[in-house]
Amino acid sequence: MKKFKLLIALFLTLTVTISCKNDKSNTDMVVYQCPMQCEGNKTYTDAESCPVCKMDLKAIDQEPDKVLNNQEISDESIFNLTNNWKTEEGGAIQLEDLKGKTLVMVMIYTTCKAACPRLVADMRNIEAQVPKENLKDLQFVLVSIDPKNDTPERLKAFAEENLMDDEHWTFLQGTESGVREFANVLAVKYKQISPIDFSHSNIISVFNPQGELVHQQEGLGVDNNETVQAILELTNK
C-alpha cells in the first residue's frame, strides 16, 4: 500500500509538472463527482450529495484523463484548451467533450442589443441551410463573452427565447480568463465598455471534429455560402 501511494504521488508530481492547473489560486471552476462514481463519470457543478448513494460529492480535477487524451489531438486543435465550462443545462464540460462533431462557434453575450441578435440570426441562417440529417454531426456553440452575467440559467432562457434549445445548440459560460484565452484562439477581439456592454468582433468559426479551425467568416449578415459549404464538406464525409 505504501508503495502504491508513493507511486501515485510520483505520478501526480509528474502531471503537476506538466501542467500547473492544480494551482488553487487560479480561477478555474471546480467540478464535483460522487466518490463512489454511482453514475460513472457524471459531474456536477455544485457540492451537493449524490442522488443515488447520497454521499457528499467530492471536488475533482479532470486533468489526468485529459493529459492522456491529448496525444490523440493535433497541435492545432482547440481541444488543447483545458478550461472548464458550464453549459446552459448546468453541466460541466471541457472543449474536448465536444470532440467528434463539426463545431460552429461564435462569441456573443445575452444582453447585447446591437450586433448579437444579428450574429444569432446568422447562426440560425447557417443552421437552416444544413440538411436535417447532417445536424447530428454538428454542434452550434455560442460562447458568452460575459461570464459574469451569463449564467447557465440566463443562457438557458436565452436559448429558449431564441428557439435554440435543440440538442445541436450549446451555450457556454466560462471563466474570465478562460473566455479571454478562447477568444485568443479564435482571434476574436472584445472589450468591456460598461458593466453590461461589450465591443467585440463578429466572427463565426467552423472547426472540424478534431477541433482544427477550418473556416472563419467575419462581419454581420455577410454572405454565408462559404461557411455553409465548409460545414457541408465536413458533415458529408
Binding site: 442589443k113 446591437a114 450586433a115 441578435p117 444579428r118 440570426a121 441562417n125 449578415g221
Partner: peptide, 19 residues
C-alpha cells in the same frame, strides 16, 4: 435606435430573408 435598429435597420427596411 437602441432596441430595434440592429434588425429592422435605420429606415425600417429590415433585412431581406431575415428580418
Amino acid at each position: 435606435m437602441n432596441t430595434c435598429f440592429a434588425c429592422h435597420q435605420a429606415e425600417g427596411q429590415g433585412i431581406p430573408k431575415a428580418f
